[in-house]
Write a protein that binds this DNA or RNA. Structure first.
Length: 697
RNA sequence: GCCAACGUAGCACAGUGGUAGUGCAGCUGAUUCGUAAUCAGCAGGUCAUGGGUUCGAAUCCCAUCGUUGGCUCCA
């Protein structure tokens, strides 16, 4: 079943091809077999409750399985208990999974009789999706059914031996999907669940999910007062609180230092630009769906509106006059419409309209002329990317090969109109600050520039301790040239070959995915995995062979000819929004000292004057060195002050009591490590400064 | 954008047709303390918004906005 479905999908749908491994002919793992079998058991259970259910595909997926079902009843989590009880009966019964090979005709006949993904024949109601799937199985390929108890499904398998081998399962959520992911197809309910060999593993999985919830950047962001969203500001538009801003500024400092050392130059550009620039860049034809609608500067808006209204009025009058005219000529009522359309066209053509109509038409013509002569309103768009602005900067000064590679860097603010359903905390937002830079270089320089960028990623990953990452090399789909990708097949091929060569030579592990390139060229997305196994595309590195030419960018070569530069778009730290979202989950909010929003909090034991003065002096000294240090001068007992600081995950707490005051010490307590004991003030301060400077983990 | 669920004080939650509650945070006062929570008092809500049903709505219905989980899309 699902496997056939996936195979038919795979040819036209890259997402399916990139999906579960079995779709690419790799054998299923044991766990995948269990989950795939659980999908059949789910279908069995649903059919016992709703015999009219029609099933489409039910593969194992990363954390479980699903089955897509068409059913008038809307399944909700409230139904899960009932369905699970039926599933339990099926696993208790411990039916064998029987594989049956059938001919194409037999499979078609069964599907026609409604006997596929079914508990038996359902005369008059064919198994419509299974029928479609059978019809798409390539000629010559074996067609198999799998049966468990009364349930028979079209399925390539494999399965576990008996239903009882699915040791533990649980339904998790319902969502919707289109059959074969195509919105022209019927919408199906997708029932998700997970399954394991035994109860212990299932419990462990849910315990892991609970842990993951505690690390969720949305939860921690709220608790640690890093950022907030506000309905009045708008969805997907994060507001950075001071603590979150501290992290942003540390990252910018890191990027600026790194890029400066690597020969980048910093630039600044505004957040919007005129329509014309985005027509040139190709954003409006190819990327407009992801852009905020334009702002129109229109000082003759009133005039335009009035003229338009008047124009519409003449159209009404015109048909009114024509109808009157037609009646005069005795045209039958039912033919009026056709006559009027014809007559107007004819009489205008003949240059001989009746007087009243002539007047109306004359006026209409005049208004039309006036309208068309009005200047178009000026349109400004919020920038979705920094590249066009940077191209303008490249073009602002005559360039020679001596200027290349020219690396223009900017932490630019970009705005993209992401679909409302896509927004997710900081991970998908509509306003983002990008660690952007554009490297303009010659073809000969491409390889070394590209490798230098890759090296920069790897250094960052080491600094943050990202151990699991992968490069995704995204290429274009020739079928979508001119629609999703700039229409220049030769350059696509040339550039993609060039990038592939460099990737292979550099030895960095990568996977290639078709149809996911940027509209202007192939790209390499860098995927990283958080400590709890969540995967994100965090950084990107794209080659642009198209847009510099559209902007007419040129440089003088050594032999005094003109060349168009290549452009590498790169953002190793991605956007602040997603990167910090990821860091929050990666560190579970326990940031290393250098990134910590509140690096040091000094906690006097009590509020006696000399103690507080000592504490204040320590804070002042640290702040003078740029350390984010604060003082808790309240009257709470020290235990309460510590609890407060620990709750906010303050990195280092410096407890000062009379003992410390007398000895000139600071008692150091580090979040997550507890009390580390008292040491001389100077030593403690020096250590803090070194740790921050070296960005120690 | 589509499907579904959800929206009660700053936060976490209780309240399913009959007077809006609890804990933490906040404020005020007392407490002067050595490594994760001292005590007491006070204040805080148009129950997301707008309509409807009802004698009566946080509770039932509709719409809108937002959030969450998926689909599609992406840094």
């Amino acid at each position: 079943m699902s496997d056939h479905a996936d195979e038919t999908n795979a040819a036209e749908d890259p997402a399916a091809a990139a999906g579960p491994s079995h779709a690419e002919g790799k054998p299923m793992t044991d766990l995948e077999r269990i989950r795939h079998s659980a999908a059949h058991i789910l279908a069995t259970a649903i059919l016992r409750i709703w015999p009219e259910a029609q099933f489409a595909a039910g593969p194992p997926v990363e954390n479980g399985f699903y089955y897509d079902v068409d059913l008038p009843h809307r399944i909700s989590p409230a139904d899960f208990e009932r369905i699970e009880a039926e599933m339990k009966k099926e696993t208790k019964a411990n039916h064998p999974f029987q594989r049956v090979e059938v001919s194409r005709d037999e499979a078609l006949a069964l599907a026609e009789n409604g006997a596929l993904a079914s508990l038996g024949e359902r005369p008059g109601t064919p198994s419509k999706f299974k029928l479609d799937i059978v019809q798409h199985i390539p000629e010559g390929e074996k067609i198999t059914l799998y049966k468990n108890g009364d349930f028979t499904d079209l399925c390539a398998g494999p399965h576990v031996g008996r239903t009882g081998n699915v040791g533990a399962f649980k339904l998790t959520h319902v969502s919707s999907t289109y059959y074969k992911n195509d919105e022209k197809n019927p919408q199906l309910q997708r029932i998700y669940g997970t399954a394991f060999k035994n109860r212990t593993q299932l419990d462990e999985y849910f315990a892991m999910l609970e842990e993951a919830k505690k690390r969720d950047h949305r939860k921690l962001g709220k608790e640690l007062e890093l950022f907030t969203f506000d309905e009045d500001v708008g969805p997907g538009l994060p507001l950075w609180l001071p603590r979150g801003t501290a992290i942003i500024e540390e990252l910018e400092k890191l990027a600026k230092e790194t890029e400066f050392a690597a020969g980048y130059e910093r630039v600044r550009t505004p957040n919007l630009a005129r329509e014309n620039m985005y027509l040139t860049s190709g954003h409006i034809p190819l990327y407009a769906d992801s852009m905020f609608p334009p702002m129109e500067l229109d000082d003759i808006k009133e005039k335009r509106r009035n003229l338009t209204k008047e124009y519409e009025e003449t159209i009404r009058q015109q048909s009114y006059v024509s109808v009157w005219e037609a009646r005069q000529r005795g045209i039958r009522e039912e033919d009026l419409g056709a006559y009027v359309d014809f007559a107007i066209a004819h009489e205008i053509k003949e240059g001989n309209p009746p007087f009243e109509l002539a007047e109306v038409l004359k006026r209409q013509l005049a208004i039309h002329k006036e309208l068309s002569e009005l200047p178009e309103p000026e349109r400004y768009y919020l920038k979705p990317m920094n590249c066009p602005h940077h191209h303008k900067l490249f073009g602002a000064v005559p360039r020679s090969y001596r200027d290349l590679p020219l690396r223009l860097a900017e932490y630019g603010f970009c705005h993209r109109y992401e679909q409302s359903g896509e927004l997710q905390g900081l991970m998908r937002v509509r306003s983002m600050q990008m660690n952007d830079a554009h490297i303009y270089c010659s073809e000969a320089q491409f390889e070394s520039e590209f490798n230098a960028v890759n090296q920069m990623y790897l250094n960052y990953f080491k600094l943050f301790g990202f151990s699991k990452y992968q490069m995704r090399f995204s290429t274009h789909d020739p079928a979508k040239l001119g629609e999703k990708f700039v229409d220049n097949p030769e350059l696509w091929k040339k550039t993609e070959d060039m990038v592939r060569d460099v990737l292979i030579k550099s030895g960095i592990p990568y996977v290639e995915v078709p149809n996911e390139a940027a509209f202007y060229g192939p790209k390499i997305d860098v995927q990283v995995w958080s400590a709890i196994g969540k995967e994100f595309t965090i950084a990107t590195n794209q080659v642009d062979f198209a847009v510099p030419a559209k902007f007419g960018l040129k440089y003088k070569t050594r032999d005094n000819t003109e060349e168009t530069p290549l452009c590498i778009h790169r953002a190793p730290l991605g956007t602040h929004e997603r990167f910090i979202g990821f860091l929050i989950e990666h560190y579970a909010g326990n940031f290393p000292l250098w990134l910590s929003p509140e690096q040091v909090r000094v906690l006097p034991i009590g509020d006696e004057e000399p103690l507080v003065e000592y504490a204040q002096a320590v804070v002042k000294e640290l702040r003078a060195e740029g350390v984010r240090a604060t003082l808790d001068a309240g009257t709470d007992p020290i235990k309460a002050k510590i609890a407060d600081a620990e709750k906010m995950k303050v990195h280092t707490m410096l407890v000062v009591g009379n003992r410390d005051l007398e000895a000139g010490n600071l008692s150091v307590r580090v979040h997550g490590k507890g009390n580390l004991g008292a040491r001389p003030r100077g030593e403690v301060v020096a250590d803090l400064l070194v740790s921050i400077k070296e960005r120690r983990a």
